[in-house]
């Protein structure tokens, strides 16, 4: 007689949850802070992984051996950072996944990287423009994150910052060398900047999950630093103000799907393969 029918049971659970929610406001806030932090770890990890993968595509195709090696070295640094961020995400998620899970077992909509890092390599000048705009942001962001109140993000940022100092110098020097180079290299560098420019603003448009965790208000300093290099390169900053976004919340260009198809083929076709 007192037996609960399934529908009663659901209703009971529903009421119970409302009571639970009401009484545990603080706990809910903590839970959302937790998931925000995990999304930030994925956003930073995805930036590093996808750009690392793109640079890795240059392996054996660089314009000269030294620059081939430079791009693959930077790729390696970035993939190392992706691993650190994904380890943090795995810890926060608490489902027993490891870093490989986040790289190989998620689909396009789950990725939170900036759109700029998934754009194709194009010519060498296109790769340099992408790297330069990203590095200038990456360096500034890590400089701030190195003082974060979150110990885990702080230690990853401190570790990364020294390496990114080298990346930023490399890409900035190439902007200057190509811009202040021959007529042809100058034209190509300017065109590359113009084409990628409207992907440069997304980094400064905060997603809900990053508020209060990632540094804000970096755009002005970034613009000053970018302008200094661009004018030393005898180039001009594109006039376009409108900026594309979406990547941070999983809305990507068509290019990301192709990257994932290539990157994830092996672990999906041969799960748990080792060598």
């Amino acid at each position: 007689m007192n037996e609960l029918k399934p529908s009663d049971s659901c209703w009971f659970n529903y009421i119970h949850r409302i009571v639970f929610l009401g009484e545990n406001r603080n706990q809910i806030d903590l839970m959302s802070e937790h998931s925000n932090l995990m999304n930030v770890a994925l956003h930073l990890g995805d930036n590093a992984l996808i750009l690392g993968h793109r640079l890795g595509e240059w392996c054996g195709h660089g314009p000269v051996l030294e620059q081939d090696i430079a791009m693959t070295n930077i790729a390696l640094d970035l993939i190392g950072k992706a691993k650190m961020y994904f380890d943090l995400a795995a810890e926060l998620e608490g489902k027993g996944h490891d870093h490989d899970f986040f790289a190989y077992k998620r689909d396009v909509l789950d990725f939170k990287n900036l759109l700029i890092v998934e754009l194709p390599n194009g010519e060498f000048s296109d790769t340099i423009a992408r790297q330069f705009l990203f590095d200038q942001w990456h360096f500034l962001m890590l400089s701030e994150l190195a003082n974060s109140s979150n110990d885990r993000l702080k230690e990853i940022a401190q570790k990364s910052l020294k390496e990114v100092t080298y990346h930023k110098r490399w890409s900035s020097e190439w902007v200057i060398r190509l811009g202040d180079g021959t007529d042809e290299s100058k034209a190509k560098m300017q065109e590359a900047l113009n084409e990628i420019w409207y992907f440069s603003g997304e980094a400064f448009m905060p997603a809900e999950y990053e508020k209060g965790i990632l540094p804000e208000g970096l755009k002005e300093t970034w613009m000053t630093n970018v302008k200094a290099i661009v004018s030393e390169a005898t180039l001009t900053i594109p006039e376009e103000d409108w900026m594309q976004d979406g990547g941070k919340t999983g809305i990507h260009t068509e290019h990301l799907g192709y990257i994932l198809a290539e990157m994830q083929f092996l672990p999906r076709a041969y799960p748990d393969a080792t060598w």
Binding site: N73, D77, E163
Partner: peptide, 13 residues
């Protein structure tokens, strides 16, 4: 310096 990046991540050429 030939290149800031060398045979391993820790070296310049």
């Amino acid at each position: 310096m030939v290149s800031q990046f060398g045979s391993t991540p820790c070296k310049s050429h």
